[in-house]
Amino acid sequence: MALQITAQCVNCWACYDVCPNDAIYEDKPHFLIDDAKCTECLGDHADPQCAAICPIECAIIDELGEALNPPGSLTGIPLEKLAELAAQGLVTTELP
């Protein structure tokens, strides 16, 4: 049971500082989670800390590939608007 960081990651270090298991490490092109150390914060916190602070939608996913912060969940931009913006090439977020 472990979370993963996707290519959406912007290397802002926020998750690195708050992980209770020191499971996150710097790598190129972006940070990664050591799946041997990640517990999804079970026993430490109600919410996985990396996903609770991450500012980027779809950057943290679970084992099933589901985004913990799906499109629109952090910015509050409605999905229809996101689709419209994606068509104009203004956003790159993958839509569900």
Partner: peptide
């Protein structure tokens, strides 16, 4: 100081 603890609507962390 790359990390942030809030989101502002005028900022894009990308």
């Amino acid at each position: 100081a790359p990390a942030c603890n809030i989101q502002c609507n005028y900022c894009n962390r990308k």
